[in-house]
Amino acid sequence: ASAHYLKDMYDIYKDWNLVIAAYNCGPGTINKAIRRSGGKTDYWEIYNYLPKETRGYVPAFIAANYVMTYYCKHNICPMETDIPEATDTVQISRNLHFEQIADICGISLDQIKSLNPQFKKSIIPGESKPQTLRLPINHISAFIDKQDTIYAHRSNELFKNRRVVAVSDTRSTARNSKGSTATGNVTYHKIRSGENLGSIARKYGVTVNQLKSWNGLRSTRISAGKRLKIYK
């Protein structure tokens, strides 16, 4: 689908930089930038009329291609990986530690981490929202068959520092002076001008991917005045 999209965009713009930009922000935004520039069809000439993220997206793409092509000239060596050719995913709806999976399924921690880089602390926070776990395909059946054993294995040891909070049926709502509203275990942050997902994520101690997942965002573009849902 991506390849077809890129081909279609190239048939329209005849410029790969514009194609990559359109992949990031959409052809409608590119067309608007072209009109604002007086009809220029070169990426660098419409650069100042593009969204901030897209202005960084194309140079980053060029830099990545440069590194992939000329890595030897800069003493950059490819790293070997043990990622298997065939993998599959399962949905996790409870908190789970990588060590529980490794112990019961016989998969190394390094391999689990390499297949699931979105989880930074070796913990899958499935209780807040269903999460996706990727495993070698030959271990998927074992995981499904032994789920109850895996969740129970060393749970008291691995999650001993996690607090259990009792939540009453009547949840109070508190608003602070920084534009966020808390209801139960969910905080609603009102986006201010100049804020981005990265700065908001750092403020609440969460990741950008979590913010996108909780709020159904497909990109990192946000608008001032709207609210973001954040789980504690």
Rank of each mutant, 00 (worst) to 15 (best):
L211R: 03
Y13W: 15
P51I: 12
E195L: 13
L133I: 09
P130M: 14
A60E: 11
I34R: 02
M68A: 15
S168G: 13
S2T: 03
Y23Q: 07
T181W: 05
T29D: 07
P117V: 15
V165Q: 11
T69S: 11
S2P: 00
A152P: 01
T132M: 15
N95K: 06
T69V: 04
A174R: 10
Q91D: 06
I123D: 01
N65Q: 12
R35C: 04
L96S: 02
A3E: 14
K121V: 10
Q111K: 15
I83Y: 09
Q111N: 11
I222C: 04
Q111S: 14
R94L: 06
K146D: 08
D88C: 04
T149E: 08
G26D: 05
I112S: 05
I140G: 00
L217E: 07
I200R: 03
S180P: 01
Y66C: 05
H97M: 05
T132H: 06
T181V: 10
Y70Q: 04
R202N: 10
D88W: 05
K121R: 08
H97N: 09
G56V: 04
G216D: 15
A182G: 00
F61V: 09
M9E: 08
G26Q: 01
N48D: 14
V58F: 10
S2W: 13
E195R: 07
T149V: 13
T207I: 10
T187F: 12
T41N: 08
K40R: 13
Y188K: 06
D8Y: 12
S155Q: 08
K178E: 10
A1F: 06
Q210W: 03
S219G: 07
H139P: 00
T29W: 01
V90L: 10
Y47E: 01
Q118A: 11
Y23L: 12
V165G: 02
S155I: 02
F119C: 00
G198D: 12
I140Q: 00
A3V: 05
V90P: 01
I104M: 07
C105Y: 08
N209M: 05
A102I: 03
S122I: 02
M9I: 08
S180M: 04
Q131G: 03
K232Y: 09
Y57N: 05
A3D: 11
N138W: 13
K212P: 00
L109C: 11
K52A: 11
T207D: 04
T170M: 09
M68Q: 12
N176R: 11
S141H: 12
I12V: 10
I150G: 02
K129I: 12
A174K: 09
R55Q: 15
D110K: 13
N185Y: 14
G38F: 06
S180A: 13
N161S: 12
S122P: 00
E157H: 04
S141F: 09
T149L: 14
